[in-house]
Structures are given as structure tokens and as C-alpha cells.
């Protein structure tokens, strides 16, 4: 019975190799995340980035289709992302169309929001899959160790030799031979092309944690390997995983934008930021705004994610503060 109590008292997400006193472990359990939250709030850049990030997500979720500012937008076609109106082709900035319109007279304020839904959804879905694969591969490799670890890491080294963009493009072609690329195809292709780093990071963390006293203690009192893994090792990788979300997200969003921009991404009329930018490319010499606005949206998202990742890293792991 004592064994169980001891294990329960071990913080679910104690900082790795913590130097804090062992006393009051149960209290520490909540206080790691509270401490991290407090440190995060002190980082002004990260907080601003987080607010902008949330506002952007809200804009993307709320604008398309049903949002209407009373008195300014008068009819449905003004804010329907797919409503075509050639009389409004490249209408320029106005209160009716705060982000102007594209060639077909589609309102970009609504379209960028709808494209953002797709871009952000692909971003989060692919990031989630990257982390799941990374955790499984990395924790097996790090936990088993020895020959298995060596082999798995060598395989990963070899995969690093594959060029990212061709690899992703070929995967989309395999998954959709007819050439119609769906959201899920994109998610899978981007995941397959970019899960390596996450796996490495998780493996590194698991190997460091494996040598900790509490893991040895758990093993010494007879905890099975799966219990050690599920109870002690994986919860402690939670911190780096939260950081990894915001490190992987920009890469995936940019990757999707690249593919859509060269015409190998999501199929029209579904919009993503990359495909709106591609639409804008036709006429950017005369109407640069159609290209620049989705690009600015991508840049803002990437910038925010970078700042949030920095802030989270400083907050969750103050020892490895990077300059």
C-alpha cells in the first residue's frame, strides 16, 4: 500500500531533474503549472502573441458565413466567402470589404477567415499527429535503449536525408492519385514529412528522465515497465510537448502554404491561406493586396507561434533559457 501512496505523491508533471525540496510533493503538483503560468504572464511578448493568436483564431472561426456587422454589410453576398460578384472584382479597400476583394469579387475579409480555418485546422491536426508519432517512436527508442534505440535513430538519420518539399509532394500524389488533394491528404503528407524532430526531442527527454532517482525508485519497488513509462516518463515530457506544439505549428502552416502556393495543395474552391495567395499571384502587379493579405495572415500566425513557443520554453524550463 505504501508503494501506491509513494507513487501517487510523485508529481504528475514535476520539472525534470528538479532541484526543489522533496517535501510537500503533493502541493508541488499544481504549483509547477501555476509557476509556469506566472512566468509566462511576465513575458510581455509572449502574452501579446498569445492574445493576437487567440484573436486570429476567433476571427477565422466566427467571420465566415454568418458574422455580420450591422449597418456596414448589407447583404449576404458581402460576407459569404464563396459568393462571386464580378462587379466587385478587385474592389479595393472599403468598409464593405475591409480586406478588398479578389478577381471574382469574393470578399477577402470572409475568405481569409475561411482560409484560416483550413490552414489552422491543418496546422493543428498535423502538429497533433506529429507529436503522437514522435511520442510513440521517441519513447520506444529512448525507453528500450540499446540496439533498438541505435537502429531506430539511424533510421531517423536516414530520413533526415529526404528533402522536405519533394517528400511531401510525392506523399500527396500517392494519397490522391486523381490529383484532388483533400485536407486529410495534406495533414498526412505534412506529418510524414516532418515528424522526425519531434521523435528526437522526445527520445532525448525520455533518456534524460530515465536516469532520475524517482524512476529508479519506482523500478526498485517493482513497478512494471509500462507503469514507469505511463506514470513517470511520459507525463514529464508534457512540458516539452506543449512547447513543441508551437514549434511545429509554424512549420506545418508554412508547408501547407508552400504546397498550395505552387498549386499542389488544397483544391479550389476550398480556400487556405496558401491558395488565396496563389489566386493573388495572377494579378499582384496591379492588385498586390490580394497576395499580401493572406501572406500577412500567415506571417502573423508564424510570428505569434514563435513568440508563444519562446515564452513557454522560458516558463516551463527556466534553466535552459535560450537567447
Amino acid at each position: 500500500m505504501a508503494v501506491d501512496r509513494r507513487e501517487a505523491a510523485i508529481p504528475v508533471a514535476a520539472p525534470p531533474a528538479t532541484t526543489e525540496h522533496a517535501a510537500g510533493a503533493a502541493i508541488r503538483q499544481s504549483s509547477l503549472w501555476q509557476d509556469a503560468w506566472r512566468r509566462f504572464l511576465q513575458n510581455k511578448g509572449a502574452v501579446v502573441a498569445a492574445i493576437v493568436f487567440i484573436l486570429m483564431c476567433l476571427y477565422c472561426l466566427l467571420i465566415p458565413g454568418f458574422w455580420k456587422i450591422p449597418g456596414i454589410w448589407t447583404s449576404l453576398k458581402d460576407y459569404d466567402p464563396n459568393a462571386v460578384d464580378f462587379s466587385q472584382s478587385y474592389a479595393g479597400f472599403s468598409l464593405d470589404h475591409p480586406f478588398s476583394t479578389d478577381k471574382f469579387g469574393r470578399d477577402l475579409f470572409a475568405r481569409v477567415a475561411q482560409g484560416g480555418q483550413i490552414s489552422i485546422a491543418i496546422g493543428f491536426a498535423a502538429t497533433f499527429m506529429i507529436l503522437v508519432i514522435g511520442v510513440v517512436y521517441g519513447s520506444i527508442s529512448g525507453f528500450v535503449g540499446g540496439r533498438v534505440d541505435n537502429g531506430m535513430m539511424r533510421f531517423l538519420d536516414a530520413l533526415y536525408g529526404l528533402p522536405y518539399l519533394p517528400f511531401a509532394i510525392i506523399t500527396t500524389q500517392i494519397l490522391s492519385p486523381s490529383g484532388s488533394v483533400s485536407v486529410w491528404t495534406m495533414v498526412v503528407a505534412l506529418t510524414i514529412a516532418s515528424w522526425f524532430t519531434a521523435a528526437r526531442v522526445v527520445r532525448g527527454q525520455v533518456i534524460t528522465l530515465k536516469e532520475n532517482d524517482y524512476v529508479r525508485a519506482a523500478k526498485a519497488v517493482g513497478a512494471r515497465w509500462y507503469r514507469v513509462l505511463a506514470r513517470h516518463l511520459l507525463p514529464n515530457t508534457l512540458g516539452i510537448l506543449v512547447i513543441a506544439i508551437f514549434l511545429e505549428l509554424p512549420g506545418v502552416v508554412l508547408g501547407e502554404a508552400f504546397l498550395s502556393f505552387i498549386g499542389l495543395g488544397i483544391n479550389p474552391p476550398t480556400a487556405s491561406w496558401g491558395s488565396i495567395a496563389q489566386d493573388g499571384r495572377e494579378a499582384y502587379r496591379l492588385h498586390p493586396e490580394v497576395l499580401f493579405i493572406p501572406c500577412l495572415a500567415i506571417a502573423t500566425l508564424v510570428l505569434c507561434a514563435n513568440f508563444i513557443a519562446d515564452g513557454l520554453r522560458d516558463a516551463l524550463d527556466p534553466r535552459t533559457r535560450e537567447t
Binding site: L254, A277, Y284, R285, P288, F292, C295, A299, V302, L303
Partner: peptide, 15 residues
């Protein structure tokens, strides 16, 4: 430089 997608930088420079 980190955040701007390269196609944006390129078209911005061209423009």
C-alpha cells in the same frame, strides 16, 4: 526573416 514565408518576401521584393 523567420516568420515571413519566402514566397511573400519574393513577391514583395518584385513588387
Amino acid at each position: 526573416g523567420f516568420a515571413l514565408p519566402s514566397f511573400f518576401v519574393a513577391t514583395l521584393l518584385i513588387y
